[in-house]
Write a protein that binds this DNA or RNA. Structure first.
Length: 623
RNA sequence: CGGGAAGUGGCGCAGCUUGGCUAGCGCACCUGCUUUGGGAGCAGGGGGUCGCGGGUUCGAAUCCCGCCUUCCCGACCA
């Protein structure tokens, strides 16, 4: 699959382990010849799971001695983990460079001015780390760098000939997460590769977007990460077209849908509901009527009451016949608040994540008792369209689910406790201020693009690409002379990969009950060499020779040369650490054999000592 | 922001209800001997302001008050 030179021929991970190539160098022995020796490696594996770790990647990375918690939402990379991290970073960097993108590097600590110019100083809300210097000037620890890239291009690019341009950095980012969790998957400090493209026109942006999309596909394939590309919302960044790369993992925080028959896939935040047929207008609809429905503040009690006291002729009343009106309070980043009413079919709840995404950058809060007191027209449990809408007495903006099409009839609150309206027709009896597609998405919902139905799964966001447009370029006055000579505002794209998160995502998708199983290019070594025998037995000198031979052949070796450690411990540690190939110098040695074990499959075979280097090279080449 | 759970040697935990003597167990660590293909055995040893502050008491890991931190869950459903 991978050409051999890609897999290990260039010993990137170990090159820096040879700080001085002169033969006189007598530093730590484990740096010699690219052999990592467990006897001197700064590593302690843990027999038990740490109490604060829940998800597999967090548990195994801590137990295996890759990372240690250093702060809430912050981790220290230990030697083994840092090797793995740099392998991931290197692959990402190589793929970016191969795509023709150029690497730069900004400070993480930035002044507030550029972010004030684009509005993100306030729009980013409490998730932004803000601080002041000794003079009282505002600074931030950057969560992303759109502003700085834009300003850099404004500084340097002087002509349309300088575009298209795609530049990137690999940088530590900061977000003051309300609740860091799941180890590396959601921290307050993390490493991200972020790229930005600059083009004169929309066609150019589309091409740059596609180039990044292709580069991301090859990057994630090389990282060994399974992924799904889904339509997404752009959140606080602004912008239009946007797709996320999600690694489908149950512990992921994102929920996405996929169509079972066409290629449609979307984050639930961005799912568009399938179009609902407009009812036939030629069939006369009876006028709306108010009925007494005492003690029915919930959809369930309402439906029960209707079926018991006001049965339909044709069928039973169901929750989908009702229109539920939810009122929330929006908190704008500038501190203003605004109530918003949302009408959804009674069989569905409002999905808060979808709502948050739809109203971003505003934040959504519950409508509390004080809010109800300020709007006496809202009868809790019996709110109807009669008191909602910008033109109504309450003046509360009223948006309805797309399923509430003109001509559809509903049972909904009559704005009096214990009363509902039956047969209230949208477009005839009430007109909403617009639609909002934020009702929960369910397994089996119709696909918006074909006749199929949707399935739901969870995933980790490992990459996000979107077409920003001119928001940042305009705000920061980036203008470049076009071919015609007139000044034009370039259009931008923004593309991110979570580097530290990718390590966790790989661990999450490459482990079993015994420990990690790293993809070879990510793994801290190619071969984990074990001595299984007495400390003074014949295995040790054989293993020492093998370590040297493996290394000379260009293989990265993790050598368990510890003394006084029982074989069981060595086997357990090897399985926990997850190097793809394990070579055991043990009891077969008298017959001239060592054991070669595949970490993932568990398959083991005895190989002649003199042939084992070639054997392992062949294993690497063939898989 | 709300709700749960928890803070006791490096790690994982018990002890707390019903206050009391030297704060205990497993792992890890140190010394010695034995052991060496699945997280070894025996013997000896070191290491803890019981999260922080205050209070009750002759006496507090234990009871009371306040604070801090960590983990999990929820984010509001008419």
């Amino acid at each position: 699959m991978l050409p051999i030179n890609k897999a290990w021929g260039k010993p990137h991970a170990f090159r820096s382990h040879q700080p001085n190539s002169s033969p006189e160098y007598t530093g730590c022995q484990r740096y010699r010849a690219g052999v990592l020796r467990l006897s001197t490696l700064f590593l302690k594996t843990l027999r038990e799971d740490p109490a604060d770790a829940e998800v597999a990647s967090h548990r195994l990375l801590v137990r295996g001695g890759f990372i240690r918690r250093a702060a809430p939402g912050g981790f220290t990379w230990l030697p083994l983990g840092w090797i793995v991290y740099r392998n991931v970073e290197r692959i990402i960097r190589e793929e970016m460079d191969a795509a023709g993108f150029q690497e730069v590097h900004f400070p993480a600590l930035l002044p507030s001015e550029p972010y004030e110019a684009t509005g993100r100083w306030t729009d980013y809300g409490p998730n932004l780390f803000r601080l002041q210097d000794r003079r009282g000037n505002d600074h931030l620890l950057a969560p992303t760098h759109e502003e700085m890239f834009t300003l850099l291009v404004r500084d340097i690019a002087t002509s349309y000939r300088d575009l298209p341009l795609s530049i990137y950095q690999i940088q530590t980012k900061y977000r003051d997460e309300a609740r860091p969790r799941a180890g590396l998957l959601r921290g307050r400090e993390f490493v991200m590769k972020d790229s930005y493209s600059f083009d004169i026109d929309d066609d150019g942006l589309a091409r740059s977007y596609q180039r990044h999309r292709d580069a991301y596909i090859s990057t994630f394939e090389r990282l060994g990460l399974p992924f799904v590309i889904v339509s997404a919302t752009s959140g606080a960044m602004g912008g239009s077209a946007s797709e996320e790369f999600l690694a489908p993992i149950d512990v992921g925080e994102d929920t996405f849908v996929r169509c079972t028959s066409c290629g449609y896939a979307a984050n639930t935040e961005a799912v568009e509901s399938a179009i609902v047929a407009v009812p036939d207008a030629t069939t006369p609809t009876p006028p709306a009527s108010v009925v007494d429905t005492p003690g029915t503040p919930t959809i369930a009690t309402l439906v029960d009451h209707l079926n018991a006291h006001l049965p339909r002729d044709d069928r039973e009343w169901v929750a989908a016949d009702t229109l539920k009106n939810v009122v929330v309070m929006l908190h704008q980043p500038d501190g203003n608040t605004e109530p918003l009413a949302i009408g959804v079919p009674g069989n569905r709840d409002v999905d808060m994540k979808r709502l948050e995404a739809a109203v971003a950058p505003a934040e959504v809060a519950a409508f509390d008792e004080n809010d109800f007191a300020a709007h006496p027209a809202l009868m809790k449990g019996y709110i109807g369209p009669g008191v909602l809408g910008a033109a109504s007495t309450s003046g509360i903006r009223y948006l309805v689910d797309p399923r509430v099409v003109d001509g559809s009839a509903w049972v909904t609150g009559a704005d009096q406790t214990g009363q509902h309206v039956i047969g209230l027709v949208s477009g005839r009896d009430f007109i909403a201020d617009g639609t909002i597609d934020v009702a929960e998405v369910r397994e089996g919902d119709p696909c918006p693009q074909c006749d199929g139905s949707l399935t739901i799964a969870r995933g980790i966001e490992i990459g996000h690409i979107f077409q920003l447009g001119r928001k940042y370029a305009t705000a920061l006055e980036l203008r470049i002379p076009a071919e015609s000579g007139e000044l034009v505002t370039p259009t931008m794209g923004s593309y991110g990969i979570g580097v530290s998160r990718a390590v966790a995502a790989i661990a999450e998708t490459h482990h079993d009950e015994f420990g990690l199983c790293w993809p070879r290019e990510i793994a801290p070594a190619d071969v984990h060499l074990i001595i299984a025998g007495r400390d003074d037995g014949p295995q040790r000198p054989v293993a020492e020779r093998l370590a040297t031979k493996f290394s000379a052949a260009g293989l990265r070796v993790l050598f368990d040369d510890r003394e006084g450690v029982s074989p069981g411990v060595r086997f357990k540690d090897a399985e926990l650490i997850g190097v793809p190939t394990i070579v055991v110098a043990g009891r077969g040695i008298d017959d001239g054999l060592v054991e070669v074990k595949d970490r993932r499959s568990g398959e083991r075979i005895d190989v002649d000592i003199d042939a084992v280097v070639d054997h392992v090279r062949a294993v690497i080449t063939n898989n």
